[in-house]
Simulated scan of single mutants.
Amino acid sequence: MDSMDDTGIVARPASRHTSHTHRLRGLAVTGVIATLAAMVATTLAAALAQAVGVDFEVPDGGEAIPLPGFAVVTGFFSVVGIVIAVALLRWSARPAERFLWTAVSLTAISLVPPLISGANTATTAALLALHLVPAAVMIPTLARSLRTRTD
């Protein structure tokens, strides 16, 4: 319902487009902050694993995974998660639920390569844990953000 005050200006509720854009932008900002936190947490966890003797050498490449590589890969796949969350917010009736199922499924699939890499037990265990660290940061953060943006 439009109302008019004595200045002749018509007050209207915020347009659906503006509200939707605000929700998408808020989700993206939350996602970027969570991505930075996931990158730091994963890199610190990898450094800790190296400090206790994990070599991160994968037989196929013959070289050890460098510490900055953990941050780069975490950043890349976290951004993929943000894109999925934004798409679900845009096109799904239940984005938080769909995101949760999608992200958990993709995380489970991501555990397969370390298991079949042929790396030693310590490296395999550390790589599995390092897949779960960013998931523990990104999934709850984005799912919670999707819930609060659709209520």
Rank of each mutant, 00 (worst) to 15 (best):
D5Q: 00
T7L: 12
G8N: 11
V10K: 13
P13H: 05
A14G: 02
A14N: 04
S15E: 11
S15G: 15
R16T: 00
S19C: 12
H20T: 09
R25Y: 01
R25F: 06
R25T: 15
G26V: 11
G26A: 08
A28Y: 05
V29C: 08
G31N: 07
G31Q: 04
G31E: 01
V32E: 00
V32Y: 01
A34N: 03
A34F: 01
L36M: 14
M39Y: 01
T43H: 05
A45T: 08
A46K: 07
L48M: 11
V52G: 05
V52T: 15
G53M: 03
V54G: 05
D60Q: 13
D60M: 14
I65H: 02
G69P: 06
V73L: 10
T74P: 05
G75F: 08
F76W: 00
F76G: 12
V79A: 14
V79K: 07
G81E: 01
I82F: 08
I82K: 02
I84K: 02
V86G: 01
V86E: 00
A87P: 00
R90S: 15
R90P: 03
W91V: 10
W91R: 14
S92I: 03
S92L: 07
S92D: 10
S92P: 02
R94K: 13
R94G: 09
A96M: 11
A96D: 11
E97F: 12
E97C: 01
F99Q: 08
L100T: 15
V104H: 00
S105T: 15
S105M: 09
L106N: 01
A108F: 03
A108K: 09
I109S: 06
I109V: 15
V112Q: 04
V112F: 03
P114S: 09
G118S: 06
N120K: 06
A122N: 02
A122D: 09
T123A: 08
T123M: 12
A125S: 14
L130M: 12
H131N: 14
L132H: 10
P134E: 02
A136C: 10
A136F: 03
A136Q: 06
M138G: 05
I139T: 06
I139Y: 02
P140D: 05
P140H: 07
L142R: 11
S145G: 15
L146Q: 04
L146R: 01
R147K: 12
R147T: 14
T148H: 07
T148W: 09
R149C: 04
